[in-house]
Design a protein around this nucleic acid. Structure first.
Lengths: 228, 228
DNA sequence: CGCTCCGTTGAAACGGTTCAACCCACGTGG
DNA sequence: CCACGTGGGTTGAACCGTTTCAACGGAGCG
């Protein structure tokens, strides 16, 4: 499948005339990264943004003491780094390949020129950024208003919806990473998960989790019930 | 000053040809709100967005137990509610007048039509949303990575920069609201502020705060130093 | 005056982190 | 083939920052 065809099914570019996909494919640059390799650092100049062809990218911040908060883990078809393109300031966070990854890089200048010409592209971009903003709102809400069990419950339900559901989840990230994504540490996560198992809400076998009591998890996610 | 003139100096619309300002002024609807009056609720359909002419608007979420987290307090010239316009989903949070306020309302349909015609407007909008996204990143970072003293120190320094600086700040919101903005409660805020005074970092008289030791605050904001 | 609202202060309770020990699966090299 | 080291995950105990609950003080106002 050519690059233009990939772009045609991306939320950012869907609905655009196909000659645009050609143009976009022309300005895109393919880049490969090893697991653990950094893509950009906080403060780096935002010279463009990325779309993921394959692999997985971790976007995160680091506190002075070295603690890391994962903002998001992006997979194939998703884009990141757009913000810096439009603010003209540096990247607001770090990005690192979480697995061997292949990315498409869109240089800022060329992309802005394109957007200037086609307002549908601009509207798509606005939609993507708006949705990201909503995600961030939810994350802020969770971090400040909810405690860890609620965040974990919500996340498990989310995973099982977006995945092929059926109450079976296979964690594709390490539990340490999941902890950071939830804004906590591995020890706490481990304790809470074992409490959830003990109460018959979930079953845990390695990185495979089965949801046994969906309603129970929902109650905890909304903090209507407490996890004893 | 006419509405079109106000729009011309707004970040969203600056740099646009002045006939656009006329058009925008025509589709805008003026609305007034009393202090405490709700502008929209979380989940309400996003039929348009707002720009503040005068007054102050509080955007926040509420947890099931009634705790509120303020996301942002907007003042004259700022806009809010744009996200729902582009996602097509409901508003992600509540908005309420924090003082007698006059707003300009831009209906969704008309505005999108305008954006479709003029890509500079789209680019301005992208810049505004991107900057908001950066703000959110910072808030997430603060909430998850830093403790309350650091958040407070950072906020004080921020206020004193954006205001007429000179180390003097007059809190234009109540301390209870400031607490919610920082993701904490009035009691905790009070204790931390009195500790800061005791250490000679700030002086406090009612809602007037003087920064005495800027460097000291910076050290605490970056968590390089602790507040004893 | 007495009411309410906001801010402050204290003591106790709680959720989460830290530190340390430990287990286990896995890969490596002797 | 087994000893060894390594890294992820788990568990326990002490610790710490924040919240909770309760009481109190002062400012503003009918």
């Amino acid at each position: 499948m050519g690059i233009a065809d990939q772009l045609a099914v991306n939320p950012l570019f869907e609905g655009l005339p196909s000659e645009h996909h050609q143009t976009l494919a022309r300005i895109a640059i393919t880049r490969s990264y090893q697991k653990g390799q950094m893509i950009f650092a906080e403060g780096d100049e935002g010279t463009g943004f990325y779309i993921i062809q394959s692999g997985r990218i971790k976007v995160f911040k680091i506190s002075p003491e070295g603690k890391e908060q994962i903002f998001h883990i992006f997979g194939p078809g998703e884009s990141f780094g757009e913000v810096a393109v439009f603010t003209g300031q540096g990247f607001p966070a770090f990005a690192e390949a979480d697995a061997q990854s292949s990315l498409l890089f869109f240089p800022r200048q060329a992309f802005v020129a394109l957007i200037r010409k086609d307002s549908s592209l601009a509207l798509n971009m606005l939609a993507v950024l708006s949705r990201r903003l909503q995600k961030f709102s939810a994350l802020i809400e969770d971090l400040s208003l909810k405690e860890v069990p609620a965040r974990l419950a919500a996340h498990l339900l989310y995973l099982c919806e977006k995945d092929l559901d059926a109450n079976k989840i296979s964690l594709d990230i390490s539990k340490g990473q999941l902890a950071s994504l939830l804004g906590t540490i591995p020890e706490t996560l481990s304790r809470i998960m074992s409490r959830m198992s003990r109460q018959g809400l979930i079953r845990m076998k390695g990185s495979h989790i089965t949801i046994l009591d969906r309603q129970g998890l929902k109650d905890i996610a909304t903090e209507g019930k407490k996890l004893t």
